[in-house]
Design a protein around this nucleic acid. Structure first.
Length: 266
DNA sequence: CTATTTGTTTATCC
DNA sequence: AGGATAAACAAATA
């Protein structure tokens, strides 16, 4: 489900619980989301400490408990965060991690379990987990930087490059299609062919990222009808710009939607 | 029953 | 070696 705007929405979902001490860490010990770590490891790190801060980098979420105890959460395809009051009745079947505090629960649920939970060692700043590349909202997301990346992958379809989290952190399937549509570029275009349009690519990426954050992050609002997103899944969907029929098909292994009139047949 | 899914990692093939 | 593509992961939904 989530790309950067939706991930930001979920980050904010846990925000009101800042200052709450986690009195119990429960969940599904065998769940795949714990990967090479364990529910017990998360418990050992977090239990007894208050939620203090959170950050997001692309689609990755970082939460700090106590002074220096961080966990990283990735939501995968179907992950979501909930904040439940003590009296709320909830379906805990896919709630693989549940943090209990005096006022209720912080819950990570993920039916398909493509997501993950990762505790850091104490004192390990999340930015030390990996050297994180610049996101579209960062200073370092420059034309120069993008040119270097695109040159390296000159033969790849631009769609595939837009989905590469090392280059476009936070961009996912629908945002990639939105950016391509706004550039009037076919998704399968080798990105080496748009090296002269990197300024435009950067501008569109920032526009889509910022616009989606503004609308979705506060309350999961609906994007304007002028965005491709609102037409892409509809059978018989029509381009909100030229009213031509939209096309869907696999590009770079993902279902892709584009306007043959605006972006070419391929 | 089949096909589909807003993501990432691993295997395989040039 | 390195990059591109396909498969795998798992469960709900149509």
């Amino acid at each position: 489900m989530p790309e950067l705007a939706e991930v930001e929405y979920y980050r904010r979902c846990w925000q009101p619980a800042r200052g709450r001490r986690i009195v119990a860490v429960e969940g599904n010990p065998g769940a795949r989301v714990f990967r090479d770590t364990s529910l017990a490891a998360v418990r050992g790190l977090v239990e007894g400490h208050a939620l203090r801060a959170s950050r997001r980098h692309g689609k990755q979420l970082y939460f700090r408990f106590g002074a220096d105890r961080w966990i990283r959460i990735r939501l995968g395809m179907t992950g979501a965060l909930d904040r439940l009051g003590g009296a709320d009745v909830a379906d805990f079947r896919h709630a693989h991690l549940r943090l209990r505090h005096a006022g209720g629960w912080l819950v990570f649920r993920d039916p398909r379990m493509f997501g993950s939970v990762q505790p850091s060692g104490r004192g390990v700043d999340p930015h030390a987990w990996a050297s994180l590349p610049p996101t579209p909202e960062d200073e370092g997301f420059t034309v120069r930087h993008l040119e270097r990346q695109l040159e390296r992958r000159a033969g790849s379809p631009l769609k595939a490059v837009l989905l590469d989290q090392a280059i476009f952190p936070g961009i996912g399937n629908w945002m990639a299609d939105e950016i391509l549509w706004r550039m009037h570029v076919h998704p399968a275009t080798p990105c080496g062919e748009v090296l002269d349009r990197v300024g435009d690519l950067r501008r569109r990426t920032r526009f889509v990222a910022r616009g989606a954050l503004r609308v979705i992050a506060p309350d999961w609002g609906d994007l304007p009808e002028t965005w491709l997103m609102n037409h892409r899944w509809r059978d018989g969907g029509v381009c909100p710009r030229c009213r031509g029929a939209l096309t869907r098909g696999p590009v770079a292994g993902r279902t892709t939607c584009w306007c043959p009139l605006c972006q070419g047949e391929g």
